[in-house]
């Protein structure tokens, strides 16, 4: 298994929310990728955005600016 490292993780209410995040991050040239949502956020299914921890501020700004539909932004070891 890969070496775990701290990540900034953004979770969403819907898959559409995850797609909007990916599109917004791509347009803003912010790093990260979609991954299956970890059980520590929610037991179930879905996608979340995992990014380097130093991008948190930029991600928060993007979420506010684009009114993205997020459940929360977390610092996690993944």
């Amino acid at each position: 298994m890969r070496v775990r490292a701290e990540k900034c993780v953004v979770a969403f209410h819907t898959t559409a929310g995850a797609m909007a995040m990916e599109a917004a991050c791509k347009a803003a040239e912010l790093p990260g990728r979609l991954i299956p949502v970890p059980r520590s956020i929610t037991a179930g299914c879905g996608l979340c955005w995992a990014a380097p921890p130093e991008s948190r501020e930029a991600l928060e700004e993007l979420v506010m600016k684009k009114h993205l539909d997020v459940v929360g932004i977390y610092a996690m070891i993944l």
Partner: peptide
């Protein structure tokens, strides 16, 4: 979710977690 992501990223194998 972690196992499925590892299978996808490292081995290019698509599965379904959760």
């Amino acid at each position: 979710a972690e196992v499925s992501d590892e299978l996808a990223e490292r081995f290019d194998i698509a599965t379904r977690p959760g």
